[in-house]
Amino acid sequence: MSQLEMTLKGKAHVYERAHINTDEIIPARYLNVHEEAELAKHAMEDIDQDFVNRVRPGDLVFAGDNFGCGSSREHAVWALRGAGIKAVIAKSYARIFFRNAINNGFLAIECPEAVDAVQNGDEVELDLAAGVMRNLTRGSEARFVPLSDFARELIEDGGLLPHIQKKAARK
């Protein structure tokens, strides 16, 4: 059975600036731990001190181009997920962040149109089967860039390690 929920709904936290880097998502001063709950306390701290207080489980982060650039720290994905974020929707991604996201079975969706249309606090629904994002607050809709078959397979398997195990079991 796929571990992927086909519809996600949550509030939008919008950071439209380009090049939000992993030092901002989780500063290196917190890399002396890697427990998700610990990292979550400091998610986005250097760009938005209030982020962790506002975020609720199931919420979504919207961001500009090249999200997650810089350091390869997977702690960035863990911190966001630990804080309750279900998916990131960005105009584009830095490659290591994207890899880390799908390797963790974490949704990193590309949808420039939705990022331009969204405001902080909007209620947004992600329909993965249809490849559509509905902004319920504004009544708008945007089609997102579909995940590649490979990325989809990884996410559906729950990430790279379960994917590899599944493949090995098949042999």
Partner: peptide, 10 residues
């Protein structure tokens, strides 16, 4: 090329 910890584990 640089990777994250899951890639490293794999």
């Amino acid at each position: 090329s640089g990777v994250g910890s899951t890639d490293l584990a794999a």
